[in-house]
Design a protein around this nucleic acid. Structure first.
Lengths: 303, 303
DNA sequence: TTTTAACGGTGCATTTTTTGCACCAGATTT
DNA sequence: AAATCTGGTGCAAAAAATGCACCGTTAAAA
């Protein structure tokens, strides 16, 4: 779109942190890009960037401008979607930032179901931790976030919140597998795998373990990938951790999951939401509504 | 602003109703303008205009696009105002569409008072009837409307509503001047001036007169200008009509105003408001708030 | 300390884009 | 049927954007 060229270049410079780097990224000469920036600042009437010896950085005015640009781009996308709606073509795009637990079963199922009714709608699913997810929302690079325990909630508008107990995942032959629920101290006395502190699972475990002097989280294997940890169980007998929404025991032969005793470990909170105050594109608005109802059913099924 | 050039041309074409006319208005060749439009439609992916034998007209997609353009322009103006705020320069612009009654005393006083505190803020005051005012709001050419009995209220967000009895204005020597309040049938039996049906004053008079078969509005002089009607009283003895907010009897020697009996004529409603859902620029938001408080004081003083 | 490398900015020739002019085909009005 | 609108197009001229070579400055590296 022609009228956004300047904006695209501006965003490129912000991303790269220097005009020269941005110029390379965007297949243009540094001088040309430099002139675009300067001309824009002239016409805008205010400086946008601080010139540092090692590059450029947005000043407060630039921050405001960039937010405007992102809002504007998002509005324009929505406009286009509306227009194609009224010309009969049902299109749309939904972009989601989510925690890993949603990847294996929940989101694939939901998306496939949705696309059965609206084949023209395309999806974009990215794994983001609690902090990144919120940043993606504010930058309009994701429409919807679905994460466990978002870090700061200021710009996050919650559409639905779901509580789930953390589960310990182990082989069916494991001594603890006979119990209905398992105690934290028992689990931690066996070899276990766990993710890093970036993830809600680990945070829950640590805060719970700190309440007692006799237990501590000492993973034999630590990874940022729940996918890796799940597969590691096939090679060495270890206890892993996961929320039920990321589990589908029927499909993982030989593995069982047992909820941790709620006296030991608090419930985990899965939050579905969007950027506060933003009007989502039609497709995203519908999908977030569908997700909301699915999560509600899930919580009723648990109870 | 460079990135809005296409938008400006589009708006020009919409305004002119034909590419050639618009081209003249905007000092450009018809061919160049034509190519801009076509190129934009190409990039946008949808036709914007219906090509008629006598010119062009927006199609539904174009209507949506134009609304986006106007929103976008208004947002950009607000952004600029925010940016100049944080660079210390207190600037801003307030654009008002109002009924004539507000012109002689109320708005001048309010604006002058406001500008004493914020000398950098500029104002734009235009007389619009009830219908035009609302259209100006939806087109973002006015920020604030202050009108009697707006026509349709769908897009109008009321910030404050003030009830005022219609007054009859006459010379101090007039026989009716001795009364505290005057009856409609008495007033209409004397020669009187009145505005056209476009204005709330006339509508109120007519609806009231229709309730009785014995009285009717028969103005000796009819005008769209309240200013004219006020001055006409200096030349011929006539009764005029006006709302108190447009009157300042102390400054009009020889003239008195008497409220019409409320059993005869309903109260007139003055509405202060803006476009529903729109976030006003800082200056306009503050000014509408100030107006709101002033009107409130006014209504308390009446009671 | 000196050296080096990366940064933003500028003059000038070149390339790309936009514009103006003349003109066409179609439809409406006269 | 003629005159006069309309939007659209080919082509040359004008205007704008770009690439290249280079400058002065400054933080990091030697």
């Amino acid at each position: 779109m022609r009228h956004m060229r300047d904006f695209e270049f501006l965003e490129g410079v912000v991303r790269a942190g220097s005009i020269r780097k941005a110029a390379e990224d965007m297949n243009i000469t540094a001088s040309a890009l430099n002139r675009r920036i300067n001309r824009f600042e002239d016409e805008f009437g205010f400086e946008i960037f601080e010139r540092l010896p090692r590059g450029v950085r947005l000043n407060p005015a630039g921050e405001l401008l960039l937010h405007h640009i992102r809002t504007q781009r998002s509005d324009f996308a929505r406009l286009k979607s509306q227009v194609s709606d009224l010309s009969g073509v049902r299109r749309g795009h939904v972009s989601i930032a989510c925690s890993q637990a949603l990847l294996p079963y929940f989101l694939p199922a939901e998306i496939a179901l949705y696309r059965k009714e609206h084949a023209g709608v395309t999806f974009n699913v990215n794994v983001r931790d609690r902090e990144e997810a919120e940043r993606e929302l504010t930058e309009f690079s994701s429409d919807i976030a679905l994460v466990f325990e978002p870090r700061s909630m200021v710009d996050f508008e919650v559409a639905y919140a779901l509580e789930q107990p953390l589960h310990a995942v182990m082989r069916a032959e494991h001594p603890l597998a006979v119990k209905e629920t398992v105690r934290l101290r028992d689990v931690l006395s066996f070899p276990h795998v766990a993710p890093s502190e970036k993830y809600a699972v680990r945070v829950l475990l640590e805060t719970s373990a700190r309440r007692s002097t006799f237990v501590s989280v000492n993973p034999m294997v630590e990874s940022e990938s729940f996918d890796f940890m799940r597969h590691y169980g096939e090679w060495e007998d270890m206890i892993g951790f996961q929320f039920p929404i990321g589990l589908n025991t029927s499909k993982q032969k030989g593995l069982v999951s047992r909820p941790l005793d709620q006296n030991d470990v608090a419930l985990g909170n899965l939050f579905l939401g969007q950027l506060r105050g933003r009007t989502l594109p039609v497709a995203s608005a519908r999908f977030i509504h569908k997700l909301s109802r699915s999560l509600q059913k899930l919580s009723q099924a648990d109870a």
